[in-house]
Design a protein around this nucleic acid. Structure first.
Lengths: 110, 110
DNA sequence: TTGCAAGTCTTGCTACGCAAGATTAGGTTC
DNA sequence: GAACCTAATCTTGCGTAGCAAGACTTGCAA
């Protein structure tokens, strides 16, 4: 309840780079990403993922490719681009720095 | 530049609890908090802090108190409430859990 | 042909952080 | 005592992210 509200806000700005990190291992399609991210507690529903993928597509962070699936409608597989890899690197540094500051504050408050 | 955009989004949902953590050591007033948070890279300007403090006030997370200052207009000192302390505890757990997930993904992507 | 299931996308909403500037209060200087 | 400066608080308007709920599409199977 209240924990979900906290998590929802924390996810902002993180999700995009989690997708990039997942794609750095190889192509994945939408629902596959959604299931993985849901398991990890990084999204609450697909309602955040598909709009995000569209944005990342427009920004050239990922490259999509249609492929027929065994059952059901075709899947759109995404691959990370060079730009995407650069962004992931940049994020890793910002995340480490900001995370350290937050941890320092939380440590100090006990 | 691009790092600032990344940080701006990362800060969402974190700032509120950084304020609580700072107040857990004792009362502080607005500009004092702003200077501290700016130094730590947790806000970009006071434009995020004052609206946040107003929200936290309304939600009963902090308790304000006016006090005349040596020079200039009076200061509004904030103290953390019991509710605020509870929220801080809840955040600490969500942060640890979500942070671990993100770190796992980033580790795996190298 | 009806139904079902996998998969993608859309709509409307809420909330946060930010830049820029408005506003208030008190002190200082001539 | 008027003009000016500074500390400090607050306001306005904006862009954008995540989410719930559901619509739409594609193919297969009864």
């Amino acid at each position: 309840m209240t924990d979900e509200r906290i998590a929802t806000n924390l996810r902002k700005g993180v999700l995009e780079y989690c997708v990039l990190a997942l794609l750095s291992h190889g192509e994945k399609y939408g629902l596959e990403l959604a299931d993985d991210l849901t398991t990890r507690g990084l999204i609450a529903s697909e309602g955040s993922l598909y709009p995000l993928l569209a944005r990342m597509r427009e920004n050239g962070l990922v490259e999509p490719r249609w492929e027929a699936s065994g059952a059901g409608r075709p899947r759109r597989y995404y691959a990370i681009t060079d730009t995407g890899t650069e962004q992931l690197t940049a994020f890793t540094q910002v995340w480490a720095s900001l995370g350290a500051q937050v941890n320092a504050l939380l440590e100090g408050s006990r």
